[in-house]
Nucleic acid binder design. Structure first.
Lengths: 337, 337
DNA sequence: TAAATTTTGTTAATCGATTAACTATTTTTA
DNA sequence: TAAAAATAGTTAATCGATTAACAAAATTTA
């Protein structure tokens, strides 16, 4: 690649010092005469000057880059949130470096190190299960960061997340209002707080409606026994000799697998069973019945994440916790129509 | 953030010059005595030295970063290829900066400029429709880059893509072998070469089988009239008073929309009509019939893309064109079983 | 009018690492 | 043993931009 035009080239051409050029090109015009400012800007444009970020960063200690560690690049949530974050970052003149932890702690750590090594100015993290220790280390290291989608209530960090507790309650309320009294909840058995909040919301809402939320209805799936556990859970829910049941799936992956098994069993949705999924999925597109599901306010999350991170970067003691309300898309999978 | 440990800190502590430290830490150990090399490495480890990429880049003019411009971050193809590229890039000690053009030419140009401004060492591009001019400019600018998935046969660039011509023929052959003689092809009307190759493959294969590939069967959809054109195309295909037809959709988005409309029409797949999709989609997951589709060799594409780009970066006159063979996943949407 | 202030610049150090060019010492070769 | 070569380092310039500190000239103030 050819060498680019440098500040000095402009300075030479304009017969002034490099400092003057730097001032003019960085909003410090008032330090030189209007004439000179104009001359420099004209020449810069003529030579098609592009500032050399690297050199600037070396001096300013800022790279105008933020690091984003997502849980898995192929989640639907990821693509949406990435897009929103990049858009907002661009507005503030930041680029985004993305890494995917694939939900694995070692990769998560690696990525943080790589990004910090690359001198990102700050980090937006979707922490993986069991990463509390790492997050605490990160606080100590003085690296500006915020958590997103997932967080640890006991660790005082800034975060932007969904109000999962509230969303879960709303789903139960919705099903209860439709006359359901047998509402199952199928969740991963992960220790992640945002997932536990979903279960807590379910349980509390069921109690409030005086409906059962015991082990018969409140199910967990181990990732390493995904298929088996899912089958067992659904078999048990369907075995209850009572009125038409409903299942709330705590994630899209759970919903897809669950609905597939319900299909295998010949259960019709919503005639034989109602279904709600916490997240949406492309897989619902061609399903014979539109699936009622939550909708994460991705744009808003992305926007707030970037804005909050910038605040944190600019002011060490910013500490902001945001819980956003989930949207709710009524399909037909609860027999709505 | 705290100041990091610098080369100089190590030099001071070890009582040697910074140059010596630099040599030792960059595989030039032979320039100093084993003793000293050992002492320096010990101290570097003790102080937890992390090289300052920015400073290094300023001097070496390399950032060890490659830029990737995808067509749309939410395509399934994108997530897969991104993952593959990042993995391979990491092996070669490169980071990846990603941008999404959303199939829009102005965004595509912007992104290239942003990435070049950020001093990426090279670019992997999925060019958008009508971007020939920009690609030619890029060649002139001496920026190392390769094209991926899409390319322009008249522009001498390196590229990694699918053999779309061949894949389309294979689908026709497959349908013909199943006894189909009415095979429709539904494609976008875009001018992009990789899409035209799909149509060309279809037409040539139909001719070879002495089957009709005229306007009745060979359909195009305008993006700006997507729904209308799709309905018309499918209505016409279904209106042909003849035996059971088949449709090959030239992309997953076309397939999803098409299958939805077939559903609306009450057409059963594969009883009333056979369907093949060029690309796979998550949306097929919950469809009542597994959809027969192509499968792009993502890992291989990503690997070859990074390797080729590195070759191009290291050696100006590398010019490599690679056409990979698509995979083929037989579902049941052609009445296979 | 003299002092103080503002305007309009410049100079030079600096960020952290790389590397060509050099020196001094030791070892090898002929 | 003298010359050549290898070994073991160091010095100092450099990458491109930023910015504190300075200085000369012009303008304002008292």
């Amino acid at each position: 690649m050819k060498r680019k035009v440098s500040l000095k080239d402009i300075a030479t051409e304009a017969n002034v010092s490099a400092a003057a050029v730097s001032y003019v090109l960085n909003g410090q015009e008032h330090r030189v005469s209007p004439d000179m400012a104009h001359r420099i800007k004209t020449i810069a444009r003529k030579l098609n000057y592009r500032p050399h970020h690297i050199a600037r960063s070396l001096k300013t200690r800022r790279t105008n880059t933020i690091g984003l560690v997502v849980a898995n690049i192929s989640y639907r949530f990821t693509t949406g949130i990435t897009r929103a974050i990049e858009a907002e970052a661009k507005k503030h003149n930041y680029s985004v470096l993305i890494g995917s932890s694939d939900e694995e702690l070692p990769k998560f750590n690696d990525l943080i190190n790589v990004l910090v090594d690359r001198d990102v100015d700050g980090l937006i993290l979707l922490p993986v299960d069991q990463s509390e220790k790492e997050i605490k280390e990160l606080i100590k290291s003085d690296t500006p960061f915020i958590l997103m989608d997932r967080y640890f209530p006991d660790i005082p960090t800034s975060y932007i997340a969904l109000d999962n507790y509230r969303a879960a309650q709303e789903y139960v309320d919705y099903l209860a209002a439709l006359g359901h009294s047998n509402v199952a909840f199928i969740n991963y058995d992960a220790s992640m707080y945002h997932l536990r909040e979903r279960t807590r919301g379910y349980v509390d809402a069921m109690k409030r409606h005086k409906l059962p939320a015991n082990a018969k209805w409140n199910k967990t799936i181990r990732r390493e026994m995904f298929d088996d556990d899912m089958r067992k859970a659904i078999d048990q829910v369907c075995a209850q000799p009572s009125e038409k049941p409903a299942i709330i799936f705590a994630s899209d992956t759970l919903a897809i697998k669950g609905i597939r098994y319900l299909n295998e069993l010949g259960k019709r949705i919503p005639e034989d069973i109602s279904v709600i999924s916490f997240d949406e999925s492309e897989a619902f597109e061609l399903f014979n019945c539109p699936v009622t599901h939550g909708r994460q306010p991705l744009e808003e999350m992305g926007r707030m994440a970037v804005q909050t991170l910038i605040d944190v970067m600019e002011n060490e003691n910013v500490n902001r916790q945001v819980l956003l309300r989930s949207g709710f898309v009524k399909g037909g999978s609860c027999g709505e129509r």
